[in-house]
Write a protein that binds this DNA or RNA. Structure first.
Lengths: 157, 157
DNA sequence: GCTATTATTGCAACTTATTGCAATAGCACA
DNA sequence: TGTGCTATTGCAATAAGTTGCAATAATAGC
């Protein structure tokens, strides 16, 4: 039994009314074919299309939401214009995004340990910090300042 | 000289080519009329319209981006469908958003002190954590669990 | 005050993402 | 294997936000 089928099986067991459709299978297949990648909705649709099946974008979005709710994928806005989806890794990883140059720096999940504990203890809140983006300014751009509003965000727009 | 004019003056001084337009003045006026509020683009447009001036939504968005880049307002996605904009407070405040019941819990900026320090020391990254939303599950919903994917996010959708 | 320069606006078109609804297709059960 | 229930899909419409471009208007310099 493949990883894919194992996962689909588990999803059905958690909620028996769940149906395993061709579309869901193909989307998961596309995600698992490149597990470390940040997939956009468009990427996924394109990958599925290569198997000769055209999915409506609303279907892709709905399947990605479903997988996100099930904790299988994370959804992140890295400031690129479209959200990215990634298989929930073990352990999760996060990103620092430079508002000036657009650099994306990977960071370890450990940086959130203290914050998680604070939220749990002080607020009894169980945060879902699975694939975070923190915007700011990287070292190089701090040393090479540009004007206040001449930012990557402008360029992204 | 009003707070509004003082602020506009400062913005011009920082970047002399900046022009103070009626539109920018009205948007800032609307924001400052209710400084503690989370304003949506629509709110702002409506407030300005009460002064008899109709602004195109693209204009409102552009002005809000400008103010954000200048550090005057913060932009936050609280999961409501439209981003909210708030005057940058002193000190900044943040929110915990429950994915199940939609509750929004205010939290103090102090919870980010450790994370900020870590990012500065370990990554030489200057984070811009001005008005954050952290999604997760509040205490009440942890005690009253619903099914895995029967979340507020579904309802929001 | 008048004029030239160019930042900003309004408009219309476009992108990303979501939603209501009728049609389709999993899957449980006979 | 066939049948019914209903979760899921595709479609078309909608919402939120962005962008290119021509027209407008703020400001600097005369």
């Amino acid at each position: 039994m493949s990883d894919l089928d194992r996962l689909l099986d588990e999803l059905r067991q958690r909620r028996p009314s769940t149906r395993i459709t061709t579309q869901r299978r193909l989307v998961l297949e596309a995600l698992m074919a490149d597990p470390a990648r940040h997939h956009t909705c468009e990427d996924v649709a394109a990958a599925v299309a290569q198997h000769g099946v055209k999915l409506d974008q609303s279907t892709v979005y709905r399947i990605l939401q479903w997988l996100k709710n099930a904790g299988v994928v994370s959804q992140t806005d890295l400031g690129s214009g479209s959200d990215v989806y990634a298989l929930a890794g073990h352990p999760p990883h996060h990103h620092l995004v430079c508002l000036h140059c657009g650099a994306i720096i990977d960071v370890d999940d450990a940086i959130f340990a203290g914050l998680r504990r604070t939220l749990q203890l002080a607020y009894r809140f169980e945060p879902r910090i699975e694939h975070f983006a923190i915007f700011g300014m990287c070292q190089a751009c701090q040393e090479h300042p540009r004007t206040e509003d001449d930012t990557f965000e402008d360029e992204m727009a």
